[in-house]
């Protein structure tokens, strides 16, 4: 397995307020797969995503990518791990308001050793005619496209998407999911999508269902539905 999680546990709070958010998560994801982490709010899926992304650390258990354990890394190595291996897409786009579409995407390139070609990315994202606009001149979907561009231009091994369509309407959500699918097939990044939207699981290679900090189901899809054909 490319990404391996072994008995990950995580709690927040102290004493009576202590809440165990992850109660021993063991699973793996193949390189180049799209994996959907599905579960209700508070099920621990975003915490797990942060642990995979190296922004949070587990209380116990290990994360390995391509055989490398993140727990064995020091702060500097961890920061390099994040920069080299991980791209992040959030529900809120976190774009810089005074920078254009092109410049916001370029931010990702500057922080990488092996960036993809800027113009090609902008075209793949369907943002070519908007490349010199600033975020306030864009729709929500265009802003999320820009944020995806910023995450993928550094050519991350793993693209982590935390509710990437959470702030978008139905049609725009489908466009964004199709874009993630296109990026996955074109650049071969492993993609992990956290969502509470059950319909999204059909576009995945692998679906992991969460409830109360535990994995309830971990299945491989034999047939994938293209994102454009999803319905909810």
């Amino acid at each position: 397995m490319y990404l391996e999680l072994d008995d990950i546990k995580k709690s927040f709070g102290e004493g009576e307020n202590r809440a165990e958010v992850l109660k021993g998560i063991t699973c793996g994801v193949e390189k180049g797969h799209i994996c959907v982490l599905l579960g209700p709010s508070g099920s621990g899926k975003s915490t797990l995503l942060n642990i995979i992304g190296g922004i949070d650390t587990p209380d116990s258990g290990t994360v390995s990518i391509d055989g490398e354990k993140t727990a064995a890394m020091n702060e500097k190595q961890l920061s390099q791990y994040r920069r080299k291996h991980i791209g992040y897409v959030f529900q809120s786009y976190n774009l810089i308001p005074n920078l254009t579409v092109k410049e916001n995407i370029e931010v990702g390139a500057y922080l990488s050793d092996k960036p993809l070609e800027l113009d090609e990315i902008i075209k793949t994202l369907g943002l070519w005619e908007h490349k010199d606009k600033i975020p306030s001149q864009l729709s929500g979907g265009q802003q999320q496209r820009t944020a995806i561009g910023r995450a993928i231009i550094k050519n991350p091994d793993i693209l982590l998407c935390d509710e990437p369509t959470g702030a978008l309407d139905y049609n725009t959500s489908k466009e964004i999911l199709k874009l993630i699918e296109d990026v996955n097939s074109k650049f071969g990044n492993t993609v992990i999508i956290v969502t509470h939207n059950d319909a999204i699981k059909l576009m995945a290679d692998q679906v992991i269902k969460f409830r109360d900090g535990r994995i309830r189901h971990n299945d491989l899809n034999t047939v994938k539905t293209p994102a454009a054909e999803l319905d909810w």
Binding site: P97, N98, L99, T100, K102, E103, D132, K133, I134
Partner: peptide, 16 residues
């Protein structure tokens, strides 16, 4: 100025 020229001016002249 057009959008591209505006972005150049912003980057050179203004600290936000």
């Amino acid at each position: 100025l057009n959008d591209k020229q505006l972005s150049n001016i912003r980057n050179q002249k203004i600290g936000f």
